Simulated assay, not measured.
Amino acid sequence: MTDNTNAPLILIVEDEQRLAALLADYLHAGGYRSAHLAEGTEVLEWIRDHRPALVLLDLMLPGRDGLTLCREIRAESQIPIIITTARVEEIDRLLGLELGADDYVCKPYSPRELVARVKAVLRRQQVSAEPVRALPGAIDLDSARLRVSDGERTVELTAVEFALLETLHRAPGRIYSREQLMERIYRDRRVVSDRTIDSHVKKLRRKLAELLPDRELIHAVYGVGYRYEDQPDTPA
């Protein structure tokens, strides 16, 4: 484990030793501490013991594969996860599986670019300590804990899901195109597909349905994008 005592701790889960060492050097230069695990069997226990700020998770691992690990991590924690994969064609499949990762990076990648992704994901979590409530309505947003509540029940969101909901929630009724949502959520201006936004919306809707099963808060506008409404649509 590299030091930088008070710096955020990044867990690198990668079986390629040279790549992991290179990433550790770049993370250290970027102001982060890092730790490395070369196989998947110890990852969950390590995360519970050390509580890293973010996990860089390779999919092809000995002992326990990255897909399984991502599901298991997300089942008990909202820690940010960036998945790395060697196959570009896997990205759509990963989105379809809705693993709950915050970002995906294809190999071969630039270590400098990956550190930039780490910074971007962590920046989305650096929100104010005060809960945000844009307008009176069905839900309250807690930006300090990345949670949303209906006053009785609470669900946890990933950083991307929270940024998406917060954007829509601040302007009820306003229609955002997918491109506008991508610009607000991915401020590093990376290229992501419409499917990425659609996948995040689908997961977010499912979580909101746990709070308000009889209400649809995020509405799709065919051919345009999405809007947020506290009140259900009424027949014309």
Results as ranks from 00 to 15, higher is better:
Asp3Val: 10
Asn4Cys: 08
Ile10Arg: 03
Val13Trp: 03
Asp15His: 13
Leu27Phe: 03
Leu27Ile: 04
His28Val: 08
Ala29Ser: 12
Gly30Ala: 09
Arg33Cys: 05
Ala35Leu: 04
Ala38Ser: 15
Glu39Phe: 07
Glu39Gln: 12
Gly40Val: 00
Val43Arg: 00
Leu44Trp: 04
Trp46Ala: 00
Trp46Phe: 05
Ile47Gln: 06
Arg48Asn: 09
Ala53Thr: 02
Leu54Val: 02
Leu57Phe: 08
Met60Arg: 14
Leu61Val: 09
Gly63Gln: 07
Arg64Lys: 10
Thr68Gly: 11
Glu72Trp: 00
Ile73Val: 08
Ala75Lys: 02
Ser77Glu: 02
Gln78Cys: 04
Ile79Asn: 09
Ile79Trp: 01
Ile81Ser: 06
Ile82Gln: 01
Thr84Phe: 04
Thr84Met: 02
Thr85Cys: 12
Arg87Gln: 10
Glu89Ala: 08
Glu90Lys: 15
Ile91Gly: 07
Asp92Ser: 05
Asp92Lys: 10
Leu94Gln: 14
Leu94Asp: 11
Leu95His: 07
Gly96Asn: 11
Gly96Val: 13
Cys106Ile: 13
Lys107Arg: 11
Tyr109Gln: 04
Tyr109Leu: 09
Ser110Asp: 10
Val118Pro: 00
Arg124Leu: 01
Arg124Tyr: 00
Gln125Ala: 04
Gln126Cys: 09
Ala129Val: 12
Pro131Ser: 08
Arg145Leu: 07
Arg145Met: 06
Arg145Asn: 10
Val148Tyr: 06
Ser149Gln: 05
Asp150His: 10
Arg153Phe: 13
Arg153Cys: 06
Glu156Ser: 14
Leu157Ser: 05
Leu164Cys: 08
Leu164Ala: 12
Leu165Asn: 08
Leu165Gln: 03
Thr167Phe: 04
Leu168His: 09
Leu168Arg: 02
His169Glu: 06
His169Ala: 09
Tyr176Asp: 11
Arg178Phe: 02
Glu179Asn: 11
Gln180His: 07
Glu183Ala: 13
Glu183Met: 07
Arg184Val: 09
Arg187Pro: 02
Val192Lys: 04
Arg195Asp: 12
Arg195Gly: 07
Thr196Pro: 02
His200Lys: 12
Leu208Ser: 07
Glu210Lys: 14
Leu212Asn: 14
Asp214Val: 15
Glu216Arg: 04
Glu216Ala: 14
His219Glu: 05
Ala220Ser: 13
Val221Thr: 12
Arg227Ser: 14
Gln231Thr: 13
Gln231Trp: 15
Asp233Ala: 09
Ala236Arg: 15
